[in-house]
Design a protein around this nucleic acid. Structure first.
Lengths: 158, 158, 158
DNA sequence: GGCGTTCTAGAATATTCGTAG
DNA sequence: GCTACGAATATTCTAGAACGC
């Protein structure tokens, strides 16, 4: 089984959701899905200034080249995430004023998206390697029982 | 086992990364990969004036004929190095103002590349002889379990 | 014949080479190839600050997301451009001090690359539609005499 | 034949756009 | 509306191929 490539989307998302540097992406109450505050995400991750600053943060979560939130959603879908309806029980309280680059006055209230993948759980980092990019080519290979190639990380990063 | 040819790429790289004359190439925090500051490298090693001056420096690290950074990357790949994502934990602080040919005002901040090979570690110079040029011919030999020839060092270099 | 998509690489390159806003990309002496000053290009087009400013210039030449010159070269090759040796007859004199964002003192002398494609000529904008992206899929289609799909321009762009 | 340099291409991921459902 | 996905282009990293020495 190929190892996780830290420069690919799943690893980046994992680092973001587990980093205190990012308020916009966090686990839901049960740790089985992620909650994304769109307005906050656009400011923290996608905007030019703050995004770069946050990207080079302590845990080294690299940022994306895109500025469009929809491209981020496309990546979630490509890796098999599905959207859930946001219920009161799924949302955990946000803590404004603790994010670098965001003033105390900035509220963390915006549209919240809830996404889920069976291979993306807080307590099961071992499942991350199962996240495969669902391109048409890869889906054909998976259907045929073949191996899906990933760009291999160097051994050092495993 | 054939000896290391000091005029070949692996030996040159080894001398550079271990030489205080070169700021642009240095070990990462764990001594298991190298960090290359591209802008600095182009000035220190590849540019005509400074490169030759530094290259013919006291420790005798011979410089390359090329002026293109991409050719240097091609060499790294030919010898089996892989690129890693640069994380905050991998980077060691740079020390500007200590490099010959660079003024104190010159900052050492540019694009940093992180490369790794299992046979290129700070504390294991004995592994260097395993670095083989991965031409298609050599790869076929290695796959067949055969010996890969290297050009032996000249009598004057041993 | 499908129309030219203004957001794709060939159209962007065409706007750049014909725009007085860009010093780094210009026609060669005969108008049958382009000359690219790498250092200037990296400052004008690829760097964050100046690139964005120049990119949003009056003629609307959109910039690239990449900061790597090699990615630009990869695009040239993907669209069938070939590199030529730079001769004295091919180079046209540069006019420093006429580029926005570049001071009068900044010289325009760096590494110059000369690229050519039979479908990219100054006096034949009608040939641009022949520039096809040479992916392996497209090459197989062309070899089979099939039609190569291009993304059509959006309705707002026609 | 080996090694370094250069130019081009392969292959994977990322981003964008359009549209079926 | 709006979610998911196909397909095209863009970007990145690595490798192939040719040539000179």
């Amino acid at each position: 089984p190929p190892a996780l490539n830290p420069s690919n989307f799943p690893a980046k998302l994992w680092r973001m959701v587990n980093s205190p540097q990012f308020c916009s992406v966090r686990w839901d109450a049960r740790g089985e899905g992620i909650l994304i505050d769109q307005v906050l995400f656009e400011r923290e991750v996608l905007s030019a200034r703050l995004g770069q600053a946050a990207g080079l943060s302590s845990d080294g979560a690299n940022v994306f080249k895109t500025k469009n939130f929809t491209s981020f959603i496309r990546q979630l879908n490509l890796y098999g995430f599905r959207k859930l309806v946001v219920t009161a029980g799924s949302v955990v309280g946000t803590r404004p004023g603790q994010c670098p680059g965001l003033g105390d006055g900035d509220s963390c209230t915006g549209t919240v998206h809830h996404f889920h993948s069976p291979n993306f759980c807080r307590d099961r980092p071992d499942l991350l390697v199962n996240l495969k990019r669902l391109t048409s080519t890869n889906k054909a290979k998976l259907a045929a029982g073949l191996e899906v190639n990933s760009r291999p990380p160097s051994r050092f990063q495993r």
